[in-house]
Design a protein around this nucleic acid. Sequence first.
DNA 1: GTGGTCTAGACCACT
DNA 2: GTGGTCTAGACCACG
Lengths: 120, 120, 120, 120
Amino acid sequence: MEYYFDNERPIYLQLVEMLKVEIVSGRLKSGEKLPSVRDFAAEAKVNPNTMQRALAELEREGLIFTERTNGKYVTRNESLIASQRRTLAASIAEDFLRRMEQIGVDPVTAAEYISGNGHN
Amino acid sequence: MEYYFDNERPIYLQLVEMLKVEIVSGRLKSGEKLPSVRDFAAEAKVNPNTMQRALAELEREGLIFTERTNGKYVTRNESLIASQRRTLAASIAEDFLRRMEQIGVDPVTAAEYISGNGHN
Amino acid sequence: MEYYFDNERPIYLQLVEMLKVEIVSGRLKSGEKLPSVRDFAAEAKVNPNTMQRALAELEREGLIFTERTNGKYVTRNESLIASQRRTLAASIAEDFLRRMEQIGVDPVTAAEYISGNGHN
Amino acid sequence: MEYYFDNERPIYLQLVEMLKVEIVSGRLKSGEKLPSVRDFAAEAKVNPNTMQRALAELEREGLIFTERTNGKYVTRNESLIASQRRTLAASIAEDFLRRMEQIGVDPVTAAEYISGNGHN
DNA sequence: GTGGTCTAGACCACT
DNA sequence: GTGGTCTAGACCACG
């Protein structure tokens, strides 16, 4: 996994988003053990505290859990993962429609670009 | 119009994209005279050379034209603008599907998030 | 306000509890401006980051809110404060009954110590 | 039994309280022989002198007595134990009301949290 | 001056 | 070696 950060938003929030994508996509599997905070931070080239903060946020959302002194794991609650996927998908869809509206394309026409009917 | 740039890509290319959106959306109207390069650059807080480069690229694509000693104008070729809108829309749609695939949502399901049927 | 911390639990959590008590008791009034994070930290003799963490937690719970570049304020949502007071009271009551049970006093007898009937 | 001490108060006093709870709750039975001071101290992970001091205090209050060369025993005076239980219960009740007052809950409302009527 | 973020480095409990 | 916490100090955007 590649980590690119822009300077506009907090790194820890960008980490949260990227990790969330990894989880809901299944690339980080339900129940899978994560690297140690230190290793994970090194991999992403951020300070361990920053990674810790991101993981704490994911834990707060229930997507990962901690076994004390042992490590952190992706939640085994697959329905929660599915729910988060739907939420993410909805926000991606919203963003899509917003960008389409920005260039003067109404939602119905926008939908045609997805379902692949009668244009271009 | 707000101008935010990230450091990952050339600023002039980001300008090209933003200006293209302004044109195909109609916020910059067909035939409308643009501000002087100097003013335009000041408005976007970039170096005039950078703005010049972005406008040259738009001219190369036919979206604007120059009246020597007089200024630059948005093209009056509305079918070209429409064509560019379709191209932009197609790339936005492509990006949408790519992001959906990233999180494990197939195109058919993705389309339902747009047409608003049977998900969530 | 006096700040004493024990070493068994994180300082920031102890801060959260103490500040919550201040708010639900009304000593920190609804809508009242808090001291700056730095001043507040100095007053409590903790590192500003620690105070920041405690305040972030209170904000997450909705008990305080931030006006960017301006300061932090106690929520104006008085029903939320009342709700938190009930929650806190319930946990204090639970603790009371637990301690009474610890020394072999059943809940009914325990209640008499509160309502002040026929014992001692 | 678990022994946790905070650093704010003398350990021997904390021991006194914990042992008193054990006695009035009946987990240490009337007439029961206590472990040797040495063993008792080891169990609680404190210095034998500290344990000795705690037991001396309990003896002063009559809750335990010493058979010279033989060991220490919980008092057989059950009415004293019962009296101590009432005293302890009263102080727990007092603490409860104090904490409730701290958060702005008056005694009558506090009592309802115990009897379980008409709140929340 | 405000809050927010990030880094570096340390110490702790737990196993 | 693990996560958790704390401190110190720095930089940033915003107004």
